[in-house]
Nucleic acid binder design. Structure first.
Lengths: 160, 160
DNA sequence: TATTGTTATACTCTATAACTATA
DNA sequence: TATAGTTATAGAGTATAACAATA
């Protein structure tokens, strides 16, 4: 409420024939965190363009990959290793079941838990999804040599 | 509805005394896109821990940085250069005004557009936010040498 | 009592369409 | 008619608390 909250406009538009405002010219252009966010969004756009038309989102793809690698993996294991909380995993699996790609199978020993398995159709569909994701990744990383790509992956893996 | 949708459980839990399921062992561990997502989430956690207690989120921080660098920047310019759509920019600015950090000033020439300016308090607060963001970035990148950091930034900047 | 999965809820982010006031 | 900003709305992602079934 004090007058120091108000700072009257010292001048109008400011960049009349200046270059248009750009994050590159600011602190944001120097922040690895901001570059990470932009690169990640660009990647999501590529991946969504590649697999979105099949009705699959990145999170669902990651569940399919884990269920193929670890048949019978439980929902809580999936939630833990994919860093997704259990309530969201419920929806992801509903969705995959609706698509006919995965199944929940009640564990006969511990009837609280469900093992997740791919259907035959899920297994087939996943092969096509993997190919598309690799394609999207190649498109996104097109500028980089395969050595630069390795370097990038290794640097990123040291950040978590 | 055909029988190929059903794939009965071939065995139960599967990793009894196996290593626990881990994305590293799968395709996900090889995808730059997945590594990008994890690194970006880790970065957000750091940044949010650093500036969240001041009630500021990363998107709001980026608006403050741009408003400082380009005083009088309009909402549509902000929306464009930060890759945020106009409706979301409305909320971001409401929020910054409520915090007393920024102001919308109606342009006297073209009364449709608003120039965005930091308040005195916004300018002061931003200095503290910048320091915290740099600190968060240092924490997040702690493992990397300053040369590796540069390499990472340059590789990322070629992905958008 | 503790755990698995679920429901309910809420808040943010993202995206789109439609409206207003100005030009 | 076009543009800047706004409102309304809806969907996905994220997070928390509380509950049912089972152990």
């Amino acid at each position: 409420m004090t007058s120091d909250q108000v700072r009257p406009a010292p001048r109008e538009p400011q960049h009349a024939d200046d270059s248009p405002p750009s994050v590159e010219q600011t602190l944001l252009g120097q922040l690895v965190g901001y570059a990470l966010r932009r690169a990640q969004l660009a990647n999501f756009r590529q991946v969504n363009a590649a697999i979105g038309e099949l009705g699959i989102r990145p999170a669902q793809f990651s569940v399919l990959v884990m269920a193929e690698a670890y048949p019978g993996i439980t929902q809580s294991e999936l939630a833990q290793c994919l860093n997704v909380d259990p309530p969201r995993m419920v929806n992801l699996l509903h969705n995959l079941e609706e698509h006919g790609l995965a199944l929940r199978v009640r564990n006969k020993v511990d009837r609280r838990s469900h093992g997740i398995f791919l259907t035959k159709r899920g297994e087939a569909e996943l092969q096509s999804l993997k190919a598309r994701v690799h394609e999207a990744e190649d498109t996104h990383l097109g500028e980089l040599s395969s050595q630069e790509r390795d370097t990038l992956l290794q640097l990123l893996q040291r950040l978590f």
